[in-house]
Design a binder for these strands. Structure first.
Length: 266
DNA sequence: AGCGTCACCCGGACGC
DNA sequence: TGCGTCCGGGTGACGC
């Protein structure tokens, strides 16, 4: 579930706690958490590395180390937790980094989808991502041109991380509703005005997500409260907050897709 | 190029 | 209560 706002929230929270600490030891508790490419001797390579910075690219969290980047994707159920190093590991901890100053960073991931890379070539992992929604190259003009360079349904296109980096299922549904665009509309059918609305909606919905510290659904990723402000996501059968029409749920590319038939006509 | 489908996972919800 | 089954999420691999 962690999408851009949740990863952003985690990065902001962890940065002041992590920067300046040294990784003393890595405990890999589920080997497949370590993605390829990563060095064969991961534990030896990461030992002694100092954390110089924490950043985010799309849904990836990046720890800038002395000689590597540690790139983390939380996928569905992953979370990063800073604990006292004396705390006992939890059931679903997949990787634990023992840090200087008596702290540990635990990568906890119930469903085992999350992956971690240790690399000197981050572009191998991040190179195909689309623009950052708050970056300088994501503009209304770019969005209109990019939509018209393709002929794809809006929902799968917005979920495509090579098109735009950071939107997941929740924020895509919310953005399309705010922009009054049907999820199945074809990208090259979007008018200039609609592209402008979509641009504003994407940024607004992500911004609100960040302001509310992300969305906490299921039992994973606690702390956010954006889930209390969804307009369409997970609201099938309930009234649209704008017009009162019953929210519909359809499946698009295997994903649950929620929209208001009146606000978002096909 | 883009689409459909599957695999990866697990815990919660549901039906019986 | 205790089974069995389905579901959902992000992404990569695959075949068409």
């Amino acid at each position: 579930m962690p999408e851009l706002p949740e990863v952003e929230t985690i990065a902001r929270k962890l940065a002041p706690e992590l920067i300046g600490r040294t990784i003393k030891e890595a405990e890999l508790r589920w080997s497949r958490t370590l993605a390829i490419p990563s060095p064969k001797h991961f534990k030896e390579q990461i030992r002694g590395q100092k954390i110089l910075g924490v950043s985010r690219r799309a849904k990836y969290l990046i720890l800038h180390l002395s000689s590597f980047r540690l790139i983390i994707h939380l996928r569905m159920s992953g979370d990063l937790l800073l604990r006292s190093s004396t705390t006992e590991p939890e059931k679903h901890d997949r990787l634990i980094l023992k840090l200087s100053g008596g702290k540990s960073l635990a990568f906890n991931d119930t469903r085992k989808f999350g992956r971690v890379w240790l690399t000197t070539a981050p572009e191998e992992i991040l190179g195909n991502l689309g623009p950052e929604p708050f970056g300088a190259d994501f503009t209304q003009e770019w969005l209109y041109a990019a939509l018209h360079a393709r002929r794809r349904q809006l929902k799968p296109l917005l979920l495509d991380q090579t098109f735009l980096g950071g939107l997941g299922n929740i924020y895509t549904d919310e953005a399309l509703h705010r922009a009054k665009l049907h999820p199945l509309n074809l990208s090259d059918s979007v008018s200039k005005k609609q592209a402008q609305a979509l641009y504003e909606a994407i940024r607004a919905v992500l911004k609100e997500g960040i302001r509310r510290n992300g969305a906490s659904i299921d039992w994973v990723y606690r702390g956010g409260n954006f889930q209390n402000h969804f307009r369409v996501y997970d609201r099938a059968g309930k009234p649209c907050k704008v017009c009162g029409t019953t929210i519909k749920r359809i499946t698009v590319g295997q994903r649950g897709t929620h929209f208001c038939p009146r606000c978002q006509p096909g």
